[in-house]
Design a protein around this nucleic acid. Structure first.
Length: 263
DNA sequence: GTCCGGGACC
DNA sequence: GGTCCCGGAC
């Protein structure tokens, strides 16, 4: 376990992408507000898309108080193009709630965070680990994929039980001295190395402890929801009439081919 | 053009 | 289970 987190953290120290919401003197904690804004934007969109929006948003709403006193239409204007506009509204609600009910400070426990607008299990974990350096798991799609492959465990994307199991697993992996970086490193690994298609296992710092890799079955994890796609059968007919009756004949290659139906 | 991934919430 | 939206893969 020690070996795993050491390897991942060493990789993260060397390879982490430079992102606007990570720009921080290395000895200061991350700005809670910056983490909130970036996590809300990242909930629905990829990093490269978020970057310009994040920068413009932070210029106009540089801190929690500024955002909390803004009107919804203007916030939505800065969100335009990102989609999932409910998130922008939730973010504004969250800012107002934090200011009015929490003296502008982010709660440091999961249970309280989960009651706040727009915050679910993943975002709660992300805030607790990134901002407060607490050993709280933040399991998004990236992390679920990483853990599923690491253990060759049959986790299913988007499945709440799998997410809960993955949170347990990640909790057990957390190194006590750098939980926040470890949490972020798992996400970074999923986003840049442990890709859902064509993962870059040869560059992966965990391949030596990855069960799926050792078994050569990386592509099989995680499982995907089997969507009950109702069998769509196309039918075409030929209309036949003999002057008195109209018949309908199914085309020969179709289901029940050649069958005559009386209309 | 179609399919799919991605969190929270209803 | 459905909805919100977009971008990327194919």
């Amino acid at each position: 376990m020690r070996e795993l987190s050491d390897a991942l953290l060493a990789w993260f120290d060397q390879c982490a992408r430079k992102l606007p919401w990570r720009e921080q003197a290395s000895d200061t904690r991350r700005d809670p507000y910056a983490v909130i804004v970036s996590e809300f934007m990242l909930q629905q969109t990829q990093v490269s898309t978020v970057i310009p929006y994040y920068s413009r948003f932070m210029e106009r709403f540089p801190d929690l108080l500024t955002l909390a006193s803004a009107e919804e239409p203007e916030v939505l204007k800065y969100w335009e193009g990102l989609g999932y506009y409910r998130r922008a509204r939730q973010l504004l609600k969250l800012a107002k709630t934090l200011v009015s009910d929490f003296s502008g400070a982010l709660p440091q426990d999961r249970k309280t965070l989960l009651k706040l607008p727009g915050i679910g299990e993943y975002t709660a974990g992300a805030l607790l680990s990134f901002v407060f350096d607490l050993p709280e798991p933040a399991v998004d799609g990236n992390v679920l994929r990483v853990v599923a492959r690491l253990d060759a465990e049959a986790y299913t994307m988007g499945d709440v039980k799998s997410q809960a199991a993955a949170r347990e697993r990640v909790s057990g992996l957390m190194p006590p001295e750098r939980p926040g970086d470890f949490s972020e490193a798992l996400i970074e690994l999923g986003a840049t190395i442990c890709l859902s298609s064509s993962p870059l296992c040869h560059d992966c710092p965990m391949s030596h402890v990855c069960r799926a890799y050792q078994q050569g079955v990386v592509a099989e994890y995680p499982l995907r929801q089997k969507r009950e796609k109702s069998p769509v059968s196309q039918m075409s007919y030929v209309l036949v009439h003999d002057g008195t009756h109209v018949f309908c004949r199914r085309r020969s290659e179709a289901l029940l081919h050649g069958l005559y139906e009386f209309i």
